[in-house]
Every structure is written in C-alpha cells, then in structure tokens.
C-alpha cells in the first residue's frame, strides 16, 4: 500500500481546496456560502474517514453476534452529526444576511457592494 493508503485524505483535501477557492475567489455571496458548505463537508468527511476501521462495521451492536465484532470509531460520528445540524442553522443565518445585504445594496456581488460603499464615502 505504501503512501497510497492515504488517498482518502488527499481526495478530501482536494474537496476542501475547491470549497476554499469558491469562498475566497468568487464575488457572489450565495456562491460563497455554497463554498463554505463544500468546505464544511470536506472537514466532516475528514473526521469521519479518520474514524473508519478496516473491516469494521457501523457502531451499532447487533442483537446476536457470532464472534467478536469490530466497530468503527463512534466518537467522530457523534461530533460530526451535530456539526451538520449546527452547520445548516448557521448557513441559514448566513443566507439571511445575504438577503438583507441584497435588500440594502440591490446586489449580491461583492465588488459592486464595495463600489457602492466607496461611492458613499466620497
């Protein structure tokens, strides 16, 4: 296997890079929020992938087991499960900020918002 055993993490890192790029390079605020969500999923997936045990199964104890069962680590699952629900609540918060910005500035593009701000200062 050598370093190939790390490919899961690398794919997740690429996913994170896509999210990060969307957040810092795009001007559209809704797109930025989507980028943040991509980023969030990548972080969640990183944690969950660390919890995986080779040959393991979901951490639910079967009614009757023949022989010892290997379970994947339940701790990252718990932490990430709550993170997803908190994530949607904070995303809603971010989106409502976007709605309010649109109502005030009439646009959701960051460069136009900056232009309007500058025009007001002069």
């Amino acid at each position: 296997m050598s370093t190939f055993g790390l490919w899961h993490y690398w794919v997740v890192i690429v996913l994170m890079m896509i999210g990060l790029y969307t957040v810092i390079a795009r001007d559209n605020l809704v797109k930025k929020v989507m980028g943040l969500n991509l980023f969030q999923v990548s972080v969640i997936m990183f944690y969950v992938s660390m919890g995986k045990v080779e040959g393991g199964t979901a951490p639910i104890i079967p009614e009757q087991a023949s022989g010892p069962v290997v379970y994947s680590n339940p701790l990252p699952h718990v932490l990430m499960l709550t993170a997803i629900v908190v994530g949607i609540a904070t995303t809603a918060m971010a989106l409502s900020l976007v709605v309010r910005i649109r109502e005030t500035y009439g646009t959701t593009e960051e460069d136009e918002i900056r232009k309007l701000d500058r025009a007001e200062h002069e």
């Binding site: 969500n37 999923v41 969640i44 969950v48 992938s49 919890g51 995986k52 045990v53 393991g56 199964t57 979901a58 951490p59 639910i60 379970y71 994947s72 990252p76 699952h77 718990v78 990430m80 499960l81 997803i84 629900v85 994530g87 949607i88 995303t91």
Partner: peptide
C-alpha cells in the same frame, strides 16, 4: 461506506433536503 450511518442519515436529510 465509512460506517458512519448516523452521519449519513443527517447529511441526506439536511444537505439534500433542507439546505
């Protein structure tokens, strides 16, 4: 596939639905 069935459940409902 990573054995995190509870997380998958939440993600399917939240991500594909509400968000």
């Amino acid at each position: 596939l990573m054995d995190a069935v509870d997380v998958a459940f939440t993600e399917a409902a939240v991500g594909a639905g509400i968000s």
